[in-house]
């Protein structure tokens, strides 16, 4: 506990040092304040953003896209993963495609999505799904193959029905790995959505940040990036916390 507290103290100190250094560098003119406004200015701007209707609306658009894409990815990814893991024929036939596609940068496909879906919300959701689904499929396949056959055997001789085997063995054994896949999926999903927004869209946090960049509104730009980053860290960390909680037994 004291160890953890001391780490935390060091981390806070490092963060404070960086922010102070930033502030001083910018105010003293060591770096061009046009390119890097002082932290205090960025922080003030962030505060204004959080109550600005324009920013919140765009943030809302992005959030909606990410939520929609996640709601599509989660069941589809798990389902495809399960089928590929459990059906010997389909698995052997289709698994390589998923492995190959995982290695391809998805961003290169964006123009195709624009051609098919236009530049509205559906394009961004579809692209988010496309970005995220592969990692979840692979994670689910890994999770299914990680279920120890001894435990299935044990459940059978202990009197488990087929349904109980799923609920008592497959579900708890697979959950941590699937959650991990979902966490990575959400990160990819957000990446895809923001990338699509930056490229052609008129709405969403990505579009807004891209516009600030073009217009040289540096304080807004840095502030927007920081807020987005903090939100993503919060999402990632809460999923990771859940993942560790359901995977406590994994040693």
């Amino acid at each position: 506990m004291t160890q953890r507290a001391s780490y935390l103290a060091v981390q806070i100190a490092i963060l404070a040092a960086i922010l102070t250094g930033w502030e001083i560098a910018s105010r003293s003119g060591a770096v061009n304040a046009m390119l890097l406004p002082p932290f205090s200015e960025v922080a003030t701007q962030m505060g204004r953003m959080l109550v600005s209707a324009r920013f919140l609306e765009n943030l809302g658009v992005t959030a909606l896209e990410v939520v929609l894409a996640s709601a599509i990815v989660a069941p589809i990814g798990v389902l495809i993963g399960l089928v590929l893991a459990e059906s010997p024929y389909l698995g052997a036939a289709y698994r390589p495609f998923f492995f190959f596609l995982t290695g391809v940068p998805k961003s290169i496909f964006l123009p195709i999505f624009i051609l098919i879906f236009g530049i509205g919300i559906s394009q961004k959701v579809a692209f988010g799904v496309f970005q995220a689904v592969f990692v979840l499929v692979i994670a689910t396949m890994t999770a299914a193959s990680s279920v120890a056959p001894e435990l299935v055997r044990l459940a059978k001789v202990s009197g488990a029905t087929r349904w109980q085997i799923y609920r008592e063995i497959y579900w708890p054994a697979m959950l941590p790995i699937v959650i991990e896949g979902m966490r990575l999926g959400v990160i990819f999903n957000i990446t895809g959505v923001i990338f699509a927004e930056m490229s052609v869209s008129r709405a969403g946090i990505g579009a807004l940040v891209a516009e600030w960049g073009r217009n040289f509104e540096i304080a807004n730009l840095i502030g927007g990036i920081l807020i987005t980053a903090l939100l993503c860290i919060a999402i990632n960390e809460s999923l990771r916390w859940y993942e560790l909680r359901v995977g406590k037994w994994r040693q």
Binding site: E150, L151, R153, L154, I169, P172, A173, K248, W249, Q251
Partner: peptide, 10 residues
Amino acid sequence: FQEASLLPWK
């Protein structure tokens, strides 16, 4: 069983 085969999450 010869190996204990306990459910590791229980």
